[in-house]
């Protein structure tokens, strides 16, 4: 069952000679529990795709469905509610609030959605526990390593039963060990039923996805086929 669907989505910025077609006729569906990576060069439309999928921007043409609901039918407040309750965002630069502890950063979206502070912090602590970050709960962002900050940001993105995770170059500033930890965390969220879209230019990151789609000049030009079972893949390797 697709949790996120983009139907013939186009996005155009500017007018006349300055017009830029950031997305052109993009169709994409992401099932609950699956991880889709979007790869493309700078300027290919990756980030635009993510902001439109997350209702932060409206498409010029086409429709986005989240959990079956067409976003064009939602009011501004309705979209804001959808974002608070159902969508988690992860950015390259973490976007944690410097004055709040890891626990407070994770509980903030719940509190903004009207959950009582004590209850929100309990749920946030569980999210941190799930990702092995319990001992970092009282640390402030500047007391955390880059990898830990991003893992806190992912805990914040999934807290409270959100169903859609949208990540923009989530390990762009991290070394390969921390990047792998971040992707394992995103994959773990998918195994618990979240739908996730990661946009990246990094193939090592994208290779964690169930499916990789390739964007070029605002269009999806290709996608990977489903992978073989690991045993079959290993058995097919040529001998030394």
């Amino acid at each position: 069952m697709s949790y996120l669907e983009l139907h013939d989505v186009s996005k155009t910025y500017g007018d006349g000679i300055a017009q830029v077609h950031a997305l052109q006729g993009v169709a994409l569906s992401v099932d609950a529990g699956s991880l889709v990576a979007v790869m493309g060069a700078s300027g290919s439309g990756k980030s635009t795709l993510l902001t439109i999928a997350g209702s932060l921007e409206d498409p010029t043409r086409g429709e986005v469905f989240v959990d079956g609901r067409p976003l064009s039918t939602l009011s501004r407040n309705g979209k804001a509610r959808l974002r608070r309750q159902s969508i988690g965002y992860v950015f390259q630069d973490y976007n944690l609030l410097a004055g709040l502890s890891a626990l407070e950063n994770v509980s903030l979206p719940l509190e903004l959605d009207g959950v009582a502070a004590r209850k929100a912090q309990g749920v946030a602590l569980e999210a941190l526990e799930d990702f092995g970050l319990t001992d970092r709960a009282s640390h402030f962002p500047d007391q955390l390593s880059g990898g830990e900050r991003q893992r806190v940001a992912i805990a914040r993105a999934v807290v409270g039963g959100r169903r859609l995770l949208l990540a923009d170059e989530p390990s762009g500033a991290l070394d390969s060990t921390n990047a792998e930890a971040v992707m394992r965390q995103i994959l773990a969220a998918c195994h618990r039923g979240m739908a996730a879209v990661v946009v990246t230019h990094d193939a090592q990151l994208a290779s964690w996805a169930d499916r990789v789609v390739f964007l070029r000049d605002g269009r999806i030009v290709d996608q990977t086929m489903p992978a073989q079972r690991p045993e079959a893949f290993l058995a097919d390797l040529p001998n030394a």
Binding site: M39, A203, Q204, A206, S207, W208, A209, V212, F214, R216, V221, D222, Q223, T224, M225, A227, Q228, P230, F233, L234
Partner: peptide, 17 residues
């Protein structure tokens, strides 16, 4: 693109391991 997709598919296989 043909070669890019093939390489990414191979990387997906190795990452699955």
């Amino acid at each position: 693109q043909v070669h890019r997709r093939y390489l990414v598919e191979l990387m997906q296989q190795w990452t699955r391991l």
